[in-house]
Design a protein around this nucleic acid. Structure first.
Lengths: 338, 338
DNA sequence: GCAGCGCTGGAAAGCGCTTTCCGCCACGCT
DNA sequence: AGCGTGGCGGAAAGCGCTTTCCAGCGCTGC
């Protein structure tokens, strides 16, 4: 079955030119080739259906056309938005993106990076959220070093500290602004459904939120940790309801968690926003049509992906660059005056 | 900066063995190597931080470890769920998945396939929905042929007819079952927010739905076509409201469109389900917590991705296989008795 | 009129790996 | 003893492409 693949050599022979000439014609080298030969080569290539062997090119040039993208869970809209941004930019640059999912396991992140290194990926965007776990962080740092040593570029979304280019959303500032806005609504008692305590993104948002409450002279919130997922939000909300908390407003550190939390509240007959206000973070596009509309901090997710891809593809100087993107508080129907 | 990459040759030299031996040790060949040499090679490789050059391997073996995944829009939960299934299986098989997004342009699909061919991808999963446009279909078919000629495998999700392995969701059957269930609720007048008329998935769902209505002895629905997106659903719903339709129940051929439609209804003060019942198709997980909960036809999206990946990775026989997955009608709060 | 130059085409040396083929050695059998 | 035989290590031939280096050639400039 598999009709052997057309090679450059065949094209060259057919066109009656040397391998070198054919290569020069078909892959924009700096060298000039006379129009006659050039035409001949182009025509035969076309007609034979020649497609260069990317592996061979990568080998010969010692550089591939792949850029890696590492996310925890492509199903999570947060990541899929970022992925959309990254792929758009990569595809425009004629690169191919390889997608790796970690399932939130730090060791997978390291494995993926190593695989990407094996493929001599030109660059990689790490969109997984960093943790504070020392051991896995240092393994990751080692892999990142190995990767850059080898000439690859690395950019992270969220969380710098790894000596790489980074796109940093204003997690802290966003949390803070949100807290103030919520305080402005008259709420006095707050609860926070935080993610796992070792996730830096979650910590930052929480820290910012606390700071914002402090700004407004409000007592620190009750904090309930849970998984960084819809179910995590659901569980955490149940736990909150089970506690003796008097909170009238709850902040879930993620829109997705907020959705889970709202489901829990609904099940328990707690009305949003009448009985309880709730806010999230991210402003996931898919969730914008929910009822009641979720108050949140909008992050330009796709743009963040684009920025990260941009950082990693622009040759960029010697030292780590950081691009900050601001979150914008969006108050909607899920939060009411108190 | 870029410290040159460790090669097999260096490992071999360090370990005092030949290239061949080192290769045999480090990449499970059929050939045996004495334990002593084997150990030595393994140790030096480890200690030098050797990572095989995937391009070189691909070239030498004439087969890469990549599997392609082509979707329209990774941001759409429908596709991201499928993507999750595909990546899981691929990663388990030690393969790398390269993600391509078409932005719903057929020609991009062809381009991507060609790129994947250049990379000698082992297989590719096409998750984009097929259209009925003859020209682009035949170009696509040609690329698919070229790809398989070359030894690659192709599987499609939805829509067979391309001579490839396929995972076919029960679009027609699901639409039909949904129509019957909705008729069972007492509705007599229906409207359908169909996708673009050339999308086969949309047509099938619509056709099934019509058949189901016919089964129940109900007049054909008003059909309004629109884009296969949230905004498409929104626009279509507005158009429906603007018309003189007496429909009491509307079927959006996609959950995502249904969300848009519900937003439109809400804006216009049409209550769901009191004034209008609405149902979707897919049962997108992210949307399960919306209020009112959306009636829909559940498709095991991730599983479909897994199945497709399975098809494409199992060497598989000579002829095209088809795996059917059934949709399950799930009636929830967005549809009421009439 | 000839050295020297700029320009184009081709031969060939890799890129890092796999795999065939060969050779060596230690057996075990007659 | 003589000789297959089987097991294992190594040399080397690619895989398909890029790129350096050299050769030829038509010019310009003195």
């Amino acid at each position: 079955m598999s009709a052997r693949q057309v090679t450059l050599a065949e094209v060259a022979k057919q066109a009656g030119v040397s391998l070198a000439t054919a290569s020069r014609v078909l892959n924009g080298s700096t060298r000039q080739v006379s129009e006659e030969l050039s035409d001949r080569v182009l025509r035969t290539a076309e007609q034979l259906g020649y497609v260069p062997n990317a592996s061979a090119q990568a080998l010969a040039r010692n550089s591939s056309s792949m850029v890696g993208l590492v996310v925890h869970d492509i199903t999570d809209p947060y990541f899929s938005c970022i992925a959309a941004g990254v792929t758009r930019v990569a595809e425009e640059a004629g690169l191919v993106v390889v997608l790796g999912t970690t399932g939130r396991r730090p060791e997978r992140e390291v494995e993926l990076l190593s695989t990407l290194r094996a493929h001599r990926a030109r660059a990689v965007v790490l969109a997984g959220s960093r943790t504070t776990d020392r051991a896995s962080q240092s393994r990751l740092a080692a892999e990142i070093d190995a990767f850059t040593e080898q000439g690859g570029r690395v950019a992270c979304v969220s969380q710098a500290k790894l000596g790489t280019d980074t796109v940093v959303p204003g997690n802290r500032a966003g949390g803070r602004a949100l807290a103030r806005a919520l305080a402005g609504l008259g709420h006095k008692k707050f609860a926070v459904l935080g993610g796992p305590s070792e996730l830096v993104v979650a910590r930052d948002r929480l820290a910012g939120f606390k700071a914002g409450l402090a700004d407004a002279g409000i007592a620190p919130p009750v904090v309930i940790n849970g998984a960084f997922t819809r179910d995590g939000g659901y569980e955490a909300a149940l736990e909150l309801l089970g506690s003796k908390s008097k909170a009238t407003c709850v902040f879930a550190v993620t829109d997705v968690m907020a959705m889970g939390a709202m489901a829990a509240l609904r099940e328990r007959g707690v009305r949003v926003p009448e009985d309880m206000s709730i806010a999230g973070f991210d402003d996931i596009p898919t969730l914008r049509d929910t009822v009641p509309a979720l108050s949140t901090v909008r992050l330009p997710l796709e743009e963040m992906g684009e920025l990260a891809a941009g950082l990693v593809l622009d040759a960029g100087g010697d030292e780590a660059r950081t691009v900050r993107v601001a979150g914008e508080v969006v108050l909607r129907a899920s939060t009411a005056h108190n």
